[in-house]
Simulated scan of single mutants.
Amino acid sequence: MKLPIALSNRHIHLSKEDIHTLFGEGYQLQLLKDLKQPGQFAAVEKVDIVGPRGEIKGVRVLGPARNKSQIEVSLTDSFILGVKPPVRDSGDLLDSPGLKIVGPKREVTLDVGVILASRHIHMHTDDAVKFGVHDKDRVRVRTFGERALVFENVLVRVHPTYALEMHVDVDEGNAAAVKNGDEVEIIQ
């Protein structure tokens, strides 16, 4: 059985407190477009992120607000910024580096929060039954085409509100020469 893959570009999830600091007290993120995962959206807002070696301008903010701010970058981005983020599941920020976020109103400096997101698959509970997997399983996924490869250690995330889709960062997607919506398959 096959499922769609999507490339996740660098982005930032902000806490409500950091949104208010960066954009102004009481500020609400503005919808640019809905993402495939229900309730998630790309916001109109962008920020700059500054590390010890360099900066990346115009990093897209994703909504809604989270409990803690989190920045997801690629390995290539980490070289530009001069940070060494660990590969982590979303929300696992322990011992990750921080950096400065520059908004239109003010700046925020995070002590932790920069990660290379673990490649993962979002699955609705019905999809998990069809694929014979459970939440937090690790699977292997094969891509197709001239640069086909097998992704190891792909985290399965199962929830009744998730839509079926595998997420990799831009570096990983480019290595496999895949684009958004291409089909991949779990190797049993």
Rank of each mutant, 00 (worst) to 15 (best):
P4E: 06
S8M: 07
H11E: 05
D18T: 00
I19K: 02
H20M: 07
H20S: 13
F23D: 07
E25C: 02
G26C: 06
G26Q: 10
Q28M: 10
Q28D: 11
L31T: 06
L31E: 11
L35Q: 12
L35N: 10
G39S: 09
Q40T: 05
F41E: 06
K46V: 11
K46G: 01
D48Q: 03
R53G: 04
E55S: 15
K57L: 12
V59A: 08
V61E: 12
G63S: 15
N67H: 15
S69A: 06
E72L: 00
S74Y: 03
S74Q: 00
L75R: 05
T76G: 02
D77T: 02
I80G: 03
G82C: 13
V83R: 01
K84W: 00
P85K: 08
S90R: 12
S90G: 14
S90M: 11
L93G: 01
S96N: 07
L99S: 02
I101N: 00
V102S: 05
G103Q: 02
K105C: 06
T109D: 08
L110A: 10
V112N: 09
V112R: 10
A117Q: 06
H120I: 03
I121R: 07
H122A: 02
M123I: 11
H124M: 07
T125Q: 13
T125N: 08
V129P: 04
G132Y: 13
V133A: 07
D137V: 05
D137W: 07
F144A: 05
E146L: 03
V150L: 09
F151H: 10
F151I: 11
F151L: 14
E152P: 03
N153K: 14
N153T: 06
H159G: 12
P160Y: 14
P160Q: 12
T161A: 14
A163V: 13
A163G: 07
L164T: 15
V168Q: 08
V170E: 11
E172F: 03
E172G: 03
G173N: 05
N174K: 07
A176F: 08
N180K: 06
E185S: 13
I187F: 14
I187M: 15
I187H: 15
